[in-house]
């Protein structure tokens, strides 16, 4: 077993709606995988199940070969699965530095180590100048960068990023994608959900496309984006 994360037959229903239907895929260590699909295709629901924020109805998930289906988010985080939410989640009444320290300390870093690490991330993400402001006072883009930083306080096994580039300034987008590229080069694994196709093409060697809760296509990004089923899904499902 060389797979880092293995998703087997995961299904989730909301009443009559099947949000995620029998999804199966594997992610190898160091892979950077794009997760794409039209709105409502089940990407965020799948991510919620993977990060433990939602429990699936069927299927199993393994991290490093160990079963981790249904574990709480905090357990998964300590096992190296970090999640960035689509709607930014930070600690608004704590300052920027303390926001990062929460992750660092909770994931087992010593106080000094966490501080060094946090300051490094603040520099790298170019938000060091606001480190003593309360996080609630930051701009939307700065909040995204901060939440992004929280995921890397201790090098994760796998980072799940849900629309990190949505609605932020291009320079901040650049900071983040440079960060992702650099970490990927060092062997960091990512799952990246985005609607921004140029970014997916640029960053992700492999992509998974979902529609109506199912995996439509999984493979090389260029192949996935040209697959007829994927084009149909995006253009409005003529396949019937």
């Amino acid at each position: 077993m060389t797979s880092l994360l293995s998703v087997q037959g995961v299904t989730k229903r909301f009443g009559g709606l099947v949000a995620v239907a029998d999804v199966t895929f594997d992610i190898a260590p160091g892979e950077l995988v794009g997760l794409i699909g039209p709105n409502g295709s089940g990407k965020t629901t799948l991510l919620n199940i993977m990060s433990g924020n939602l429990s699936g109805d069927e299927g199993t998930i393994r991290l490093d070969g160990e079963p981790c289906t249904g574990l709480k988010p905090q357990r998964l985080a300590r096992r190296g699965l970090m999640r960035m939410f689509q709607l930014t989640r930070i600690f608004p009444r704590m300052n920027v530095l303390d926001n990062l320290l929460v992750s660092g300390r909770a994931l087992g870093l010593a106080a000094d180590e966490a501080k060094v690490r946090a300051n490094g991330l603040l520099e790298e993400l170019q938000i060091a100048h606001v480190r003593h402001l309360d996080a609630g006072q930051l701009s939307g883009g700065q909040m995204k960068l901060l939440e992004f930083g929280c995921c890397f306080m201790r090098t994760p096994r796998l980072a799940l990023l849900d629309e990190p580039f949505a609605a932020i300034h291009p320079t901040m987008k650049e900071i983040m994608s440079r960060f992702i590229r650099a970490r990927h080069a060092e062997g960091q694994a990512f799952v990246l959900v985005s609607h921004d196709m140029p970014v997916i093409v640029e960053l992700c060697p492999r992509s998974i496309c979902m529609n109506a809760g199912r995996v439509l296509s999984d493979g090389k990004t260029s192949d996935v984006l040209t697959a007829p089923a994927v084009i149909d899904a995006y253009l409005g499902g003529a396949a019937a």
Binding site: Q74, A77, R89, M94, A106, C150
Partner: peptide
């Protein structure tokens, strides 16, 4: 101590705290 950080994190956003690995 780190408890102070964790408690305030829980106060501000429990889901974000859980994501960060805090034992809620």
């Amino acid at each position: 101590s780190q408890a102070g950080l964790f408690l305030e994190a829980i106060r501000d956003d429990e889901i974000a705290a859980a994501r960060s690995g805090v034992r809620i």
